[in-house]
Design a protein around this nucleic acid. Structure first.
Lengths: 353, 353
DNA sequence: GCCATCTTGTCAACCGGTTGCCAAAAGTTG
DNA sequence: CAACTTTTGGCAACCGGTTGACAAGATGGC
């Protein structure tokens, strides 16, 4: 009774499971070696070290591998070599569309070069971020940090361990990819100045944000050049809600134009101002940053300083992968251009009355 | 001369590199065993099989592990066990915000339960999707397919190998999580009918999309109930651009209200219609699906049938993880409710003239 | 005080690749 | 054709965990 009966119908699923569990994806190099009549190590070489075995043996092994539908076991490979063909990407907030394009660019590039992308979120917190990074370090060959919130030193410590590329921030000694805000901002401020604006409010992002600081600097510099008075305002969070909340401060500032740390803030701000009866752009001009998905859904569509985010993701990934194969130049910073995207939310000052 | 001199300055970086390269993340269970004076296998058991070793030894080992900052090597663990603590998520299109919330929900849930999420994209193609899925199967413990485009049989074949959960589609014999469109659609159609609409166009999504078919069925059923005439139109792609392109068909159809397969189509359609001078909702009402990020950025904000996408991601992940620890019920379908979100893009028919 | 039972730790094999080292085979040269 | 160089394939150790089998020690019953 307890003896397995091969004809017992109940035994069939068990027997059928075998090839599913054991036989499905586990032709090993040993199986190939047996089939091809060579040594496993020869198989290993044929499959990973091009030119190390003769063309004849190579073909023999490749045929056997094809016949058995061989797939390398990534773990078995990772164990002795440490290479995993995986890169990690850590973003501050997955729900923030700013990162969408970065993720997309990174994903595409990684796939193209036969790497797998692993995604983690730091919830805008430096400590969560560091934890996630440490965890990823264990399994990934390298790391991309997008808009990291952690300490410069932590980043460098990470980079000492494995290749790291940073997006949207500049860290000494670590390769970085950053949008160069200069051009886009000066275009924006010049455009506003040309439309008669004399006082410009800048709604800042998170205090730890390196990029927010750069943008504020850029705005100040451009304002000086164009003889516009800049005013800095703080936001609670870099989100649509944060934008709504800062509306009263914006009104109180008396500025006729606003630039915000990002598009989310700009959109929230615009909604709140319009809800309060302020015409955009007739009474107040609004300029965002990044040109995220949805920035042109608003009425009027949002004028914004576009950062080529997808390009950043692509560039950072390319950089990292080059580093991994050892051909990466050293820790320079790659700058990508920003530009003004003029839409409907900015324009001439209309004399109130 | 060739003898290493401990005082030789040139030797220092080499010596310093050791702990960086070898000593950084590689305390092994062997190191712990040595420090604690026990056998490596005892360490392994202490660390993974609770209760298998005495409390005294347990403490000894834990202390040693803490002192050495031990971290398991996931590959060494994965090799003999096959468990990787990784789950894969495949989405049709990363740039489509529909998936944002799904990704986010899945990511959060996975992290919470100490799993890593790996993301892949199928570019809306069944074959790319299958390739990606096969690849992931090799490294992940289970898979979540969001809006899969591949064949039912392919999905079942995958599911025979390792646990698979499907979102936004129902596949016999495979656990699924789907928004139940019935409630949301009937609310929407009833609302439109109450506002005097008698002819409703439905802009369909991709032909292979299971969900698109369900939504069309739902619309037909609700229309019959409310005595509204449904017309089906096709879209080229389920994107903003696809929505713009379908605008002339919508006009030609003579319908006074439109429901679209998703919000992206609705937004594109609204932009195009407005650009052509059609007032929304005065001349035509538009209702989308999903309530994605940005659906309320438009003017008027988009009325839409909300699918709790984040919830779907969370539920699917929970389901999958339960399956992995063996406590998952069998292949049932989990339905989550949809509801109408009434915003400004739908309303009463205004007599033209 | 002896034997049965349970607990706890050890041994050794194994997962599936990679790689340094070496010897056999093949190719080259005088 | 011998001597030498270059290819090519095989052997075996190793990466760092897991786990079945087993034995020593602790516990308990009679």
């Amino acid at each position: 009774m307890t003896e397995p009966n091969p004809k017992d119908p109940a035994a069939i699923p068990d027997a059928a499971k075998r090839p599913g569990r054991d036989g499905k994806s586990n032709a090993t190099i040993y199986d190939i070696a047996k089939l091809a009549g060579v040594n496993p190590s020869t198989v290993s070489r044929a499959l990973s070290k091009p030119g190390r075995v003769s063309a004849k043996t190579q073909k023999l092994i490749e045929d056997a591998a094809a016949e058995l539908r061989y797939q390398v076991n990534p773990f078995a490979r990772a164990l002795p070599t440490g290479r995993t063909n995986t890169i990690g990407l850590i973003v501050a907030d997955i729900t923030n569309p700013t990162f969408f394009d970065i993720i997309r660019g990174a994903q595409a590039t990684a796939t193209l070069r036969d790497y797998t992308l692993v995604l983690a979120e730091s919830a805008e917190s430096g400590v969560t971020e560091l934890t996630a990074a440490r965890r990823m370090m264990a399994t990934a060959d390298g790391l991309i940090l997008a808009s990291p919130r952690m300490d410069d030193n932590d980043i460098r410590a990470l980079a000492a361990d494995k290749p790291v590329v940073v997006i949207n921030r500049e860290v000494d000694g670590v390769p970085c990819v950053i949008p160069d805000v200069g051009k886009g901002i000066s275009e924006a401020v010049r455009s506003l100045a040309a439309n008669g604006h004399r006082k410009l409010a800048f709604v800042a992002g998170p205090p730890q944000s390196w990029m927010s600081a750069r943008r504020w600097e850029g705005v100040q510099a451009a304002c000086e050049w164009s003889r516009v008075t800049p005013v800095r305002l703080e936001s609670s969070r870099p989100t649509v809600d944060g934008g709504r909340q800062v509306a009263r401060d914006v009104l109180a500032s008396g500025a006729t134009a606003v630039m915000t740390y990002n598009d989310l803030l700009a959109i929230g701000l615009m909604q709140e101002l319009q809800a309060g009866g302020m015409a955009v752009p007739d009474r107040i001009s609004i300029v965002g940053f990044d040109d995220i998905f949805g920035a042109d859904f608003t009425t009027p569509p949002l004028t914004t300083v576009r950062s080529p985010l997808g390009e950043c993701g692509t560039a950072a990934t390319t950089r990292l992968l080059d580093l991994l194969v050892g051909e990466g130049g050293d820790a320079g910073t790659l700058r990508v251009e920003t530009e003004l995207v003029l839409r409907g939310s900015s324009g001439r000052v209309v004399r109130q009355g």
